[in-house]
Amino acid sequence: MDMTELHNIVRVSGVTKVFTLKKHKVEALRGVDLEIRSGEYLSIMGPSGSGKSTLFNMIGGLDKPTSGKVFIDEVDIAQLDAYELAWLRCRKIGYIFQTFNLIQVMTALENVTLPMIFGGMHNDAAVQKGLELLDLVGLGERFRHKPSELSGGQQQRVAIARAMANDPAIILADEPTGNLDLSTGEEIIELLKRLSEEKGVTIISATHDFKMLSVSDRVVWIRDGRIDKVEEREQLSISVGEIAHRL
């Protein structure tokens, strides 16, 4: 193992999260510790209501833990002010959503260039890079199309290109295949895997899509707000037969 693989890009330490709903306290997370290595492809698996999405939002700096800490690149994100958080979201993290979340009024190219504009890149350079990224995800010809003129799979490709725009260290994918059919989902998973290998970007995806398992380096199983177990890839191939029973 070389140095980069030893480096923890994300460290979650003793994180709990309590939601208060009409005087009822719901413990979404009850103490989660997790270390994510730079460059790995990690899947967070678990049934809905398991705290999977909550953990995922914590890692992305979208939500703050009730107690415990989340470190990204060894920086405690609770210590960051609004400006630094925005910078983190812009430059360090790329987000991919289940519902694609492209800006409907913008073309594919404009969607991809927007984070680069925020990042301070010059417009021409951003357009140039945006076209390259769309090419990379196989949509080079369709850069002028609006999201409504693209299929679900194509929209998700644009979203992936957008997530890659500022060369982030981490890509967070929340159920990236949730709204896609089987074969399109597979294509998206393959694309993510290829990008993680080519660009060395850390991919963290929350999912309950079993197709994700075969490409993941590690799988974290969440159950009732706790980490049930963490499986390395080698262990996975052994237990793959019993997975269907687990959920």
Binding site: A82, Y83, A86, W87, R89, C90, L102, I103, F118
Partner: peptide
């Protein structure tokens, strides 16, 4: 709502 949330995820500040 979603559009605003998305651009904030892309790094937009409140002031944008």
């Amino acid at each position: 709502f979603r559009e605003i949330g998305t651009i904030k995820c892309l790094g937009a500040l409140d002031s944008f």
